Simulated assay, not measured.
Amino acid sequence: LPSEPKIFHGRESELSDVLELFSQGTPRIAILGAGGIGKTSLARAIVHHAEITVKYTQHRYFVACDAAANQVELAALIGAHLGLKCGKDLTQAVFQYFTTGPSSLLVLDNLETVWEPTECRGDIEEFLSLLADVQHLALVITMRGAERPSKVCWTHPFLGPLQPLKQSAAHQTFIDIAEDYHSPEDIVQVLSLTDNMPLAINLIAHLVDVEGCSSVLSRWEAERTSVISEGYDKKSNLDVSISLSLSSPRLKAVPHAQELLSLLSMLPDGLSDVELLQSKLPVKDIWHCKTTLIRTALAYLDDKKRLKTLLPIREYMRKTHPPRNELVKCLFKHFHELLELHKDFSGAEMISATVGQISSNLANIQSLL
Results as ranks from 00 to 15, higher is better:
residue 295 R to L: 05
residue 207 L to T: 12
residue 207 L to M: 09
residue 52 I to F: 01
residue 188 V to K: 12
residue 315 E to M: 02
residue 155 T to Y: 12
residue 277 L to I: 12
residue 345 F to Y: 13
residue 61 Y to I: 06
residue 19 L to Y: 02
residue 281 L to S: 05
residue 53 T to A: 11
residue 294 I to D: 03
residue 157 P to D: 14
residue 56 Y to N: 08
residue 152 V to E: 08
residue 185 E to I: 11
residue 254 V to L: 04
residue 339 L to W: 13
residue 214 S to P: 00
residue 226 S to A: 09
residue 243 S to L: 07
residue 147 E to W: 10
residue 332 F to A: 10
residue 347 G to T: 08
residue 80 A to I: 07
residue 309 T to H: 08
residue 104 S to K: 07
residue 252 K to S: 11
residue 340 E to A: 03
residue 256 H to R: 14
residue 20 E to D: 08
residue 113 T to W: 00
residue 3 S to E: 14
residue 133 D to G: 14
residue 308 K to R: 14
residue 109 D to T: 03
residue 213 C to V: 06
residue 107 V to C: 05
residue 297 A to D: 08
residue 346 S to C: 11
residue 92 Q to L: 09
residue 157 P to L: 14
residue 56 Y to S: 11
residue 47 V to P: 00
residue 33 G to T: 05
residue 88 K to T: 08
residue 281 L to G: 00
residue 218 S to N: 10
residue 194 T to I: 07
residue 178 A to R: 06
residue 83 G to S: 02
residue 360 S to F: 05
residue 221 E to T: 04
residue 199 L to D: 06
residue 131 L to G: 10
residue 95 F to P: 00
residue 152 V to Q: 12
residue 90 L to G: 00
residue 245 S to F: 00
residue 101 G to A: 00
residue 198 P to F: 08
residue 231 G to C: 04
residue 11 R to H: 06
residue 119 E to H: 05
residue 5 P to F: 08
residue 257 A to S: 11
residue 40 T to G: 06
residue 130 L to H: 05
residue 237 N to L: 02
